[in-house]
Deep mutational scan, measured.
Amino acid sequence: LAALHAEGPLAGLPVTRSDARVLIFNEWEERKKSEPWLRLDMSDKAIFRRYPHLR
């Protein structure tokens, strides 16, 4: 499970980098069924690119 911001401008976004990794992994797991070539990237760089508020 990932903790998400409940309200405000960040509502629905992950609270920590660990939470972001959970979301990225879950999405990758779903997408790899139809796109088996996808690589999993959970590096800090990938997290910041996707969720800049975690910098």
Rank of each mutant, 00 (worst) to 15 (best):
L1C: 12
L1W: 13
L1D: 10
A2T: 05
A2E: 03
A2G: 08
A3W: 15
A3P: 03
A3V: 15
A3F: 13
L4I: 09
L4R: 02
L4D: 06
L4G: 05
H5N: 05
H5P: 03
H5E: 03
H5C: 08
A6I: 11
A6P: 13
A6T: 13
A6L: 14
E7R: 07
E7I: 09
E7Q: 15
G8F: 05
G8E: 14
G8W: 07
G8S: 06
G8C: 07
G8R: 04
P9M: 09
P9L: 12
P9W: 06
L10P: 04
L10C: 06
A11M: 12
A11Y: 09
A11L: 11
A11Q: 15
A11I: 10
A11F: 13
G12S: 14
G12K: 07
G12R: 03
G12D: 04
G12T: 05
L13M: 11
L13Y: 07
L13S: 04
L13W: 04
L13C: 08
L13R: 02
L13T: 03
L13F: 09
L13Q: 15
P14A: 01
P14C: 00
P14G: 01
P14Y: 01
P14I: 01
P14L: 01
P14M: 01
V15Q: 09
V15W: 03
V15R: 15
V15S: 03
T16G: 07
T16D: 10
T16A: 05
R17S: 13
R17W: 12
S18Q: 11
S18H: 13
S18P: 06
D19G: 07
D19Y: 04
D19M: 07
A20F: 07
A20E: 02
A20W: 01
A20I: 01
A20V: 01
A20K: 00
R21K: 14
R21W: 06
R21F: 06
R21T: 04
R21L: 13
R21S: 09
V22D: 03
V22Q: 14
L23G: 01
L23D: 02
L23V: 08
L23Y: 04
L23I: 11
I24M: 12
I24K: 00
I24P: 00
F25Q: 06
F25A: 08
F25C: 11
F25S: 05
F25G: 02
F25M: 10
F25W: 10
N26R: 13
N26Q: 13
N26F: 14
E27N: 04
E27S: 06
E27D: 11
W28S: 01
W28Y: 04
W28Q: 02
E29C: 11
E29T: 12
E29R: 15
E29K: 15
E30F: 14
E30L: 12
E30I: 10
E30D: 11
R31K: 13
R31A: 09
R31I: 04
K32D: 03
K32P: 02
K32M: 07
K32L: 11
K33M: 11
K33I: 13
K33A: 09
K33N: 12
K33C: 08
S34V: 10
S34A: 11
S34C: 11
S34D: 15
E35D: 09
E35M: 07
E35A: 08
E35P: 04
P36S: 06
P36T: 06
P36K: 08
P36D: 05
P36I: 05
W37K: 05
W37V: 07
L38T: 12
L38V: 14
L38W: 08
L38D: 04
L38S: 11
R39Q: 15
R39N: 09
R39H: 14
L40T: 02
L40F: 04
L40W: 03
D41A: 03
D41W: 06
D41T: 05
D41N: 09
D41L: 05
M42N: 07
M42L: 13
S43W: 01
S43A: 05
S43T: 12
D44A: 10
D44L: 14
D44W: 07
D44N: 14
K45N: 15
K45W: 09
K45H: 13
K45E: 14
A46P: 01
A46N: 12
A46I: 05
A46K: 06
A46M: 08
A46T: 09
I47F: 01
I47H: 00
I47E: 02
I47G: 00
I47R: 00
F48K: 08
F48H: 06
R49F: 09
R49I: 09
R49W: 11
R49L: 14
R49V: 09
R49Y: 13
R50N: 04
R50A: 11
R50P: 01
R50K: 11
R50D: 03
R50I: 08
R50M: 06
Y51N: 01
Y51S: 00
Y51C: 01
Y51T: 00
P52K: 04
P52L: 02
P52M: 02
P52R: 03
P52S: 02
P52N: 02
P52A: 04
P52I: 02
P52Q: 04
P52Y: 02
H53V: 01
H53A: 01
H53N: 02
L54F: 05
R55I: 15
R55L: 14
R55H: 08
R55N: 15
R55G: 09
